[in-house]
């Protein structure tokens, strides 16, 4: 199978999955107890106004018409209007995407930069102090709930280190806005040469990214370690040694590379954990991203907004996993041949 065919197949599967996600979200809304109109205008509202609202939101149509409308809307990128603020859901989702994306990417980068070398050291110095240290760290890392870790980091930085946390680390954003986004900060740096905005951004994202990244750092460390130990035991390593290849080259070019290939797939699947983690990290740090907005929508039972956010997250998950599969297929020549 060529790589193109392979991708087309994965894309078709992805479309099916997204359709399933949309359907499940619609079904959940349909079985949800309570009249959605109440959520919009309040239970004490005039029945006439309520009817008007039901008409406006299409709530009087038969269920299958609502479903078709709903799916159509989703396909055209129209996620409806928020019950609470009457704003377009699409806009409400999109304006929150950069913050979450920046957080998730920063966390992933931190995780990979720390975890891969740690895993390599751990695997190459098995049963030495460095290995024990890395093992202990990764055990703690996968066992610590990240909301608690976030609070403890705030405690550490703000209370014990006596940092003026509101000004320096800036955990809270009173207007629900970050002082500066990554894109703007980079633009400022490029156009004016002023690096202050970027530094501010780094300061703000530091603790949330560490909080979110710790679990992944720990997990990738474990995977790298055990994967490399497995890989070192394979006959081809001995054969490569026999032809005189220096040890460093074997370790990185052959063993680490072959270890990373399956880890990439696992990471794709663990993306859900990353997004779930982002939701709760954002809550702890008041980070104005999708997760923060999702919790607001849940508390207000704002169905369209909630659906919009969840479908969007699922879409991202599916797309990234297709990308991961494509990467996997190019790295491991056996995949497309099976």
């Amino acid at each position: 199978m060529s790589i193109g065919k392979f991708l087309v197949k994965r894309l078709l599967q992805g479309v099916l999955v997204i359709w399933g996600v949309i359907t499940i979200m619609f079904a959940l809304r349909a079985v949800s107890p309570g009249d959605p109109a109440n959520l919009i205008v309040g239970p004490a509202a005039d029945p006439e106004i309520r009817d008007q609202v039901r008409e406006q939101y299409g709530l009087n149509e038969p269920i299958y018409v609502q479903y078709v409308d709903y799916v159509q809307g989703m396909i055209t990128g129209d996620f409806g209007y928020s019950f609470q603020s009457s704003r377009e859901v699409t806009a409400m989702v999109l304006e929150r995407v950069p913050a979450t994306l920046e957080l998730a990417i920063a966390a992933t980068i931190i995780a990979i930069v720390i975890a891969v070398p740690l895993g390599v050291i751990s695997a190459s110095r098995r049963n030495e102090p460095a290995d024990y240290g890395a093992t202990l760290f990764s055990l703690l890392g996968i066992s610590t709930p990240n909301f608690w870790l976030g609070l403890m980091l705030i405690l550490l930085f703000a209370v014990f280190l006596q940092d003026p946390m509101e000004t320096y680390l800036g955990f809270t954003f009173p207007q629900g806005r970050r002082p500066v986004g990554f894109g703007e900060a980079v633009m400022t740096l490029v156009t004016t040469g002023y690096a202050g905005d970027l530094l501010t951004w780094v300061r703000h994202i530091m603790l949330p990214a560490i909080t979110l990244g710790t679990y992944f750092t720990a997990m990738i460390t474990r995977l790298t370690r055990s994967g490399m130990i497995d890989e070192f035991g394979k006959p081809y390593v001995t054969a490569t040694e026999a032809k005189g290849i220096p040890y460093v080259l074997i370790r990185y070019k052959h063993v680490l590379r072959n270890t990373m290939i399956p880890i990439i797939t696992v990471l794709g699947l663990q993306l859900g954990t990353l997004i779930g983690g982002a939701v709760i990290t954002e809550t702890v740090f008041n980070w104005p991203g999708l997760g923060d907005r999702l919790i607001q929508a849940l508390n207000a039972r704002d169905w369209p907004l909630m659906q919009g956010i969840i479908v969007f997250i699922a879409l991202g998950f599916v797309l990234i996993n297709i990308a991961v599969d494509a990467l996997y297929a190019t790295l491991d020549p056996r995949v497309t041949n099976e």
């Binding site: 999955v17 399933g20 996600v21 949800s32 993306l271 779930g276 939701v279 709760i280 909630m306």
Partner: peptide, 24 residues
Amino acid sequence: MRIADTMLAFPSLVLALALIGVFG
């Protein structure tokens, strides 16, 4: 397996929140 894939497309915490949003 498509059903399973669909379930996997939801981050578990997010799906859990949605379900609790529905059922209380």
